[in-house]
C-alpha cells in the first residue's frame, strides 16, 4: 500500500507537499488508519498529527482520509483504501498549522458562541433535578458529540462563512441544550440564533451526517432548531 501524507512544516517547507510512504499491511488483521500513522511516525518522527485515546472518543485525530473526513483511530484501512492508496490530508476549511494539524480555534469559538452549558434560573434543589426517562431520551444523539470537527469542516456553508455560520457541531450542541428539559433559557438561546447566518446558512447538504464518526445527525438537530424558531416567532 502507498500512504500519501500532506506535509507542511512552517520554517522548513516553503509550500505544502504530499509525501509518499510504502507500507506493508499485515495479512491476518485489519488496521486502523491511526495504527498505520503510528508505525510511520516511529520511522519518520517528523509527521505531525494529533491523537490521544485511540478509541474514537476524544476526537483528536479527525482528518481527511481518501477525501472523506473521519477519525484515523476509528477508520479501518480496508474501508478507506482505494486502489492500494491511502491519502491523508488535514481537515478542510481550517488553517493548517503543520502537516495534518489544523488550527481549530474558529471551530471552538463557534462552539462557545452557542453558550454550551446548562442555564437554569430556578433555585437548585438539595438533590438532583428530576428528569423523566422520556425527556432524557431527547438528549440521545446530541450529547455524544466529541468535538472532532469532522462535520463542521465538511460543510460548504462553514467553508464560506466560518465566522458567521455556526456550523453543524456547534448547532448540535445548541440543540442539545434547547432539548434539555432542565434548561430554562430557550427564548434567550433562540433569540441569539435569529440572524441570517448562524443557523439559516445550513442548506441541508448533509455532509455533516455523512462525516460524523459517532453516527450523529446534526442536520436533524438544525431542522429542530428551525422548527423551534418558527414556533417561537409565530
Amino acid at each position: 500500500m502507498q500512504v500519501s501524507i500532506y506535509r507542511y512544516i512552517p520554517g522548513k517547507d516553503t509550500e505544502p507537499r504530499m509525501q509518499h510512504y510504502d507500507y506493508v499491511l499485515p495479512d491476518d488483521r485489519d488496521l486502523m488508519v491511526l495504527e498505520v500513522l503510528e508505525d510511520l511516525k516511529a520511522k519518520d518522527p517528523s509527521i505531525g498529527y494529533r491523537r490521544s485515546c485511540r478509541e474514537g472518543v476524544c476526537g483528536s485525530d479527525g482528518m481527511s482520509i481518501n477525501g472523506r473526513n473521519g477519525l484515523a483511530c476509528k477508520t479501518p484501512v480496508s474501508e478507506a483504501i482505494s486502489r492500494d492508496k491511502l491519502m491523508l490530508r488535514p481537515l478542510p476549511g481550517l488553517p493548517v498549522i503543520r502537516d495534518l494539524i489544523v488550527d481549530m480555534s474558529q471551530f471552538y469559538r463557534q462552539y462557545e458562541r452557542v453558550d454550551p452549558f446548562l442555564k437554569n434560573d430556578t433555585a437548585k434543589p438539595a438533590q438532583e433535578r428530576l428528569q423523566s426517562q422520556e425527556d432524557r431520551k431527547k438528549l440521545d444523539g446530541l450529547y455524544e458529540c466529541i468535538l472532532c470537527a469532522c462535520c463542521t469542516t465538511s460543510c460548504p456553508s462553514f467553508w464560506w462563512n466560518p465566522d458567521k455560520f455556526l456550523g453543524p457541531a456547534a448547532l448540535l450542541q445548541s440543540y442539545r441544550f434547547l432539548a434539555d428539559s432542565r434548561d430554562t433559557a430557550t427564548e434567550e438561546r433562540l433569540s441569539k440564533l435569529d440572524d441570517p447566518f448562524s443557523v439559516f446558512r445550513c442548506r441541508g447538504v448533509m455532509n455533516c451526517v455523512n462525516a460524523c464518526p459517532k453516527d450523529l445527525n446534526p442536520t436533524k438537530a438544525i431542522n429542530e432548531i428551525r422548527t423551534l424558531l418558527v414556533k417561537n416567532g409565530t
Partner: peptide, 9 residues
C-alpha cells in the same frame, strides 16, 4: 428583513 427566520419564511 435582517432576521434569518423572516428571510427563511
Amino acid at each position: 428583513s435582517r432576521s434569518g427566520l423572516s428571510d427563511f419564511l
